[in-house]
Each structure stands twice: as C-alpha cells, then as structure tokens.
C-alpha cells in the first residue's frame, strides 16, 4: 500500500551523456508513444537504478506495512472483522511478493533486497513507523493509508516499466477492496457510541500528519524529477498526488462528522488546490533517517524473522539449486 515513486535517497546518477545516444533516443521515443519497457530491453543505467530502488522500497513498504495492522488480527472485534483484516494483511504480503519479483527482473535478488532492508540501507514508507494503538487505528490505516496508496499506485500503474505496471494493476484491484473494508470499519466507529467515535477521532488525529507526509515533501522541480517524469517512472508530483488525495477524501472524512486536525485546511475553489498547515517536514526527515517512533522496532521484527528462518532456507536449499531471475 504505497507506490509513491519517492525513493528518499540521493541518486548518484550515471551521466546521461555516457549512454548510447541512439539507444537512448529509441528508448525515449518508445516511452513517449506509450510503449512499455520490458526486462530484456535496453534501458539507461539511471532508469534501472531508480526503478530498482522504487519497486524495492514499495515492496519493503508492503511487508513493513503489514506490521501495524497485523497486530490487530489477534484483537479484531468479532468474526467479520477478524476474517477481513486477516485477508487484508495477507494481501499486503502478496503485494510484497509480487513487487520483489518485479524488482528482481531488474537484476537485484530478493535476498539482497531483504538484506538491505534489515540493515537499514534501503528505505520504506515513513508512515509505517507510527504505532497503531487501538482498533480504530487499524480501521483508519485500512481506509486512508490504503486510499493514499491507491492515488499513487493508480498513477504509477501507467508508468513505463512493464513488470511494475502490471503488478500495480493487480495490486490496485485488491487495494480498492481494502479501501471499502477500511471505510466500512471507520463508518461503524464514526456512527457508533461516544466511545467508538472518540476512538476513531483520536486515531485520525494520530494519522493525519503521517498521511500528509506520505506523499513526500513539497515539489521542487529538480532535474531528476523532470527526467523521471519524462521516462514515466514517476507519474505525478508529490503535491499533485497529495492534492488529489485531499480532494477525494477530506469531504468523505467530514461527511462522517470527524474533525481533521488542521486549522488551515481549505480548498481554493478556483484553482482546486488544497491548502494545509506545515505538517512538520523536520519530523518527516527525522523519521526517514531512522528516528521515528517505531523504526527500530519495525526493523527488529524483520531482522528476527530473517534470523529465525535461516535454518529453513539452509534446510531446503539443495546444493544443486540455482538462482533464476523471475520473468514478470
């Protein structure tokens, strides 16, 4: 449930001037015409590098994203919710599996990616470093974090890399179910007892700032963003995606009688642009760099999973087995 196209890491670009100009021109023409780039096709080093990071971070965001909601599978209220949240979190793991395979087509193994995740070398979406204190947090995540992800993913599904784009098409279908499930869970709380209303309001208060962070910092049209948008790696700017999310969901939140904790929130009807208070971009940077409420715990869980399962990988790995890059 991510797919933002932000990598939050400095790109040390291979100079485009070093690329073969004819191949580069063909590559760009193909993309401009709406063609897809496939694993065996020629691609500039920068494209390969950026996409690998982007898909890898998306995959990491799915498995780390399973953790805050995953803790509520055992505490969901009643059969209907328990079965639904279990299915939902399972989907996220399925998305991770799909995305790691898509990233592998660019030449990096799943093992190497997981290794980079647990050592802190590669990033994942910041939002999953925040805690889910109550059932209402799980409901708000399923509705609004998944909604935010859909905004990103629907845009990026139109991107130029075939395996990623096809993976996103499939993911978006499942995410739209999550959104319905999350919305339903929030509606029950928001229209329930005072206690339930308070629970969901408090959860929204906790998640609003991370949701604004979710789309990344405000646009600064760097040279890279231009190239990446031309190559259809990134399909919309952070501000465009955030604005689209607010346009779709702020009215729906208000409809439920919930307050959004931002006094400056409002829409300019002429431009269609939403204004909002500074969601503390310094905090965003701190969390990206590892100093969020749960960064250490999230990675510790993943590390424990890797350590505890090492014996299984060794036990089933036949000495004759060979690594095969998956075909997307």
């Amino acid at each position: 449930m991510y797919g933002g196209g932000n990598t939050f890491e400095k790109i040390t670009a291979t100079k485009l001037e070093d690329e073969d100009p004819i191949l580069l021109q063909e590559f760009e023409e193909k993309i401009a015409k709406g063609g897809k780039i496939e694993p065996q096709d020629w691609m500039p080093a920068l494209y390969r590098k950026q996409l690998t990071r982007m898909i890898e971070q998306h995959a990491h965001s799915e498995i780390i994203g399973a953790l805050p909601e995953g803790t509520w599978i055992t505490r969901a209220p009643g059969f209907r919710r328990k079965r639904a949240i279990l299915a939902k979190v399972q989907d996220e793991i399925g998305h991770a599996q799909l995305l790691y395979s898509a990233a592998e087509t660019l030449g990096k193994t799943r093992e190497a990616m997981i290794n980079d995740l647990v050592t802190g070398k590669s990033k994942y979406s910041n939002i999953f470093n925040y805690p889910a204190y109550t059932w209402a947090d799980a409901a708000v995540i399923a509705w609004l974090v998944d909604a935010a992800a859909i905004v990103n993913q629907t845009a990026n599904a139109k991107g130029s890399y075939g395996p990623y784009s096809r993976a996103l098409d499939r993911i978006c279908i499942e995410e739209s179910f999550h959104l319905k499930y999350g919305h339903d869970a929030v509606v029950y709380l928001a229209t329930g007892t005072d206690m339930q209303r308070q629970m969901v309001q408090e959860a929204l208060n906790r998640w609003w700032k991370p949701l604004m962070h979710f789309f990344g910092p405000p646009d600064k049209q760097s040279k890279h963003t231009e190239i990446l948008m031309r190559w259809k790696v990134k399909m919309g700017t952070n501000d465009e995606m955030r604005n689209q999310f607010m346009d779709m969901y702020v009215p729906k939140i208000w409809e439920l009688g919930l307050d959004i904790p931002d006094a400056e929130l409002g829409k300019d009807e002429e431009t269609g642009i939403w204004s909002f208070a500074d969601p503390d971009w310094e905090e965003f940077k701190r969390v990206i760099n590892g100093d969020g409420p749960l960064n250490k715990e999230r990675l510790a869980v993943r590390k424990a999973v890797e350590n505890n399962s090492e014996w299984i990988r060794k036990a089933i790995l036949s000495p004759e087995s060979k690594y095969v890059v998956p075909l997307a």
Binding site: A66, I73, K82, Q90, E92, G94, V305, S309, I312
Partner: peptide, 13 residues
C-alpha cells in the same frame, strides 16, 4: 493467523 506478516518466507506467510 499469528504468523501473518511474520512468517519465515512470504510464500509461507
């Protein structure tokens, strides 16, 4: 269901 999200391999998850 306690394994969901933390099983040894994604396929087993």
């Amino acid at each position: 269901g306690e394994w969901t999200g933390i099983a040894p391999m994604m396929e087993e998850d």
